[in-house]
Design a protein around this nucleic acid. Structure first.
Length: 430
RNA sequence: GACCCUGUCGUCUAGCCUGGUCUAGGACAAGAGCUUUUCAAGCUCUCGACACGGGUUCAAAUCCCGUCAGGGUCACCA
């Protein structure tokens, strides 16, 4: 039975790299019908915070990862002390006293060659004579990371350790502990790191790092996961959009890349847009409602849901992030939408009183206020005036929406309705 | 500095294991054009890479060696 674990430390939010590690572990467990275990590594009492634990659990759930078991290292200190005691008695560790008289347990490293068969990288060799004696239990009584990690992975029967590249150099130290404690060695797989655009580690300087930041920006969890998956793995048939369900059946740990990948927000935007296009408008509307309420664009308990749904559908194909809807569609909610200054100069400098007046009259005469009829009225008008369609379309769009870009003009007019459209155009008639 | 990992278009990658079908394929970005309406949408096209140097071989992106470059780790942090 395959058992993998994701072991975050609650000293910060769940970040992109952690989310990716969780994804590969979860995928591996799912494809092997194994168990996915979550272990909170909160041995550092100073830096570990309850709020981070909550945040990590929340983000993991948002990504859709359900764990089968949950452990906290802070509740297992007796296990670590027990195993340290065992090593002490076997003469494989010794006690070191600090000047203040506090005792730490130190592991004696014996010189030897250590071979790791990494599932992704193949054989990696180390010389333990380059490794100094390792602290097992610190003088404050808490275990060190490497020791707690080994005791837990062994006691929790973890079969495959899938983690970041940055743990490669911890591996020989941990193997030494496994051997000294007589534990069965798990298999290792080290994932390449995700780098920021500056070539270094992904950091707050180069952009948002927390999974929750991406949620707040309007990325769909499926899209973020799809993008993260593509960052170091490919199905091999040039497919880019891969659902989690498909990934489970296609995923092979051996096909994971060895090279570190750079996080590219532009491609994430594209992937997100692909998912947004196909997303259920009802769900998108549910996500948007709180944001629209906050902006006072709609009233929480009294708004036209069907209307909102229509607007969502109108913008869905072109949104990189769901939250962009709030700004892009603001003119449907504001009484006085802000007019883009450059757009105003470009399209509304000349006097279009006559054209706007005729267009309003055309709309008023419409037997039915629908998209096709609005367009027909418009086409007829430009024909009569003998001008190009775009000579009037752009000014109309700016006058109605305040922007130079957006959905098709006739859809905009239809959803704005005859009254609002007329009122906004009249403002430009002298 | 020592040890370890990695090196295909600007970015993510396919191909590498099992050399020839690779004048290296796809995607994002960028640029150009089309769309009798915009673009941040759609369609079409263009630009653009096997880090370098040696081998091995009839033949190397693919195998071997070296160099260089990038990254990671060297805590009583995790």
């Amino acid at each position: 039975m395959v058992r993998v674990r994701f072991a975050p430390s609650p000293t910060g939010n769940l970040h992109i790299g952690g989310g990716r590690t969780a994804l590969f572990n979860w995928l591996f467990a799912q494809s092997a019908k194994g168990k996915f275990i979550l272990r909170i590594e909160d041995t550092d009492k100073e830096r570990s915070k309850k709020e981070f634990v909550d945040e990590i659990l929340f983000s993991l759930k948002w990504l859709g990862f359900n764990w089968d078991e949950l452990y906290y290292q802070s509740q297992r200190f007796d296990r670590y002390r027990m195993h340290a005691e065992k090593l002490l008695q076997a003469g494989k560790a010794y006690i070191e006293k600090s000047p203040e008289g506090k005792e730490a347990v130190i592991f004696k490293v014996t010189p030897q060659k250590i071979k790791v068969e990494d599932l992704i990288r193949g054989t990696i060799e180390f010389d333990s004579s380059l490794i100094k004696d390792q602290v097992l239990i610190k003088s404050d009584g808490t275990p060190t990371y490497n020791f707690a990690c080994v005791v837990d992975d062994a006691e929790m029967n973890i079969t495959h350790i899938i983690r970041g590249d940055d743990h490669i150099s911890n591996t020989p130290k941990q193997i030494l502990f496994y051997e000294a404690l007589g534990f069965i060695l798990p298999q290792f797989a080290h994932l390449p790191l995700i780098m920021g655009m500056d070539g270094g580690r992904l950091s707050k300087r180069t952009g948002a790092t927390a999974i929750s930041d991406y949620r707040k920006m309007g990325y769909l969890s499926e899209a973020l996961l799809n993008y993260l998956l593509l960052l170091s793995w490919a199905p091999g048939d040039n497919r880019e959009i891969i659902s989690l369900a498909q990934a489970i059946s296609l995923f092979k740990i051996k096909n994971v890349n060895k090279t570190s990948a750079t996080f590219d927000l532009k491609k994430l935007d594209w992937v997100n847009n692909q998912y947004l296009k196909l997303a259920d408008p009802e769900k998108l509307a549910d996500e948007l409602i709180p944001l629209l309420v906050e902006k006072q664009y709609i009233n929480k308990d009294n708004f036209d849901r069907a209307y909102l749904l229509s607007l969502v559908k109108l913008f869905q194909p072109r949104l990189p992030r769901l939250n962009d809807f709030v700004d892009w569609a603001d003119f449907f909610f504001l009484t006085e939408p802000a007019i883009d200054e450059a757009a105003k100069v470009k399209y509304l400098s000349q006097d279009l009183s006559k054209e706007f007046k005729f267009f309003i009259q055309g709309l008023e005469k419409l037997p039915s206020f629908d998209i096709a009829s609005i367009e027909a009225a418009f086409r007829e008008l430009v024909c009569q005036l003998g001008i190009e369609a775009k000579a009037l379309i752009h000014p109309l769009r700016v006058a109605l929406t305040g922007k130079t870009i957006g959905p098709g003009l006739f859809e905009v007019i239809y959803y704005l309705g005859p009254e609002r459209s007329k009122r906004r155009l009249e403002k430009w008639i002298k």
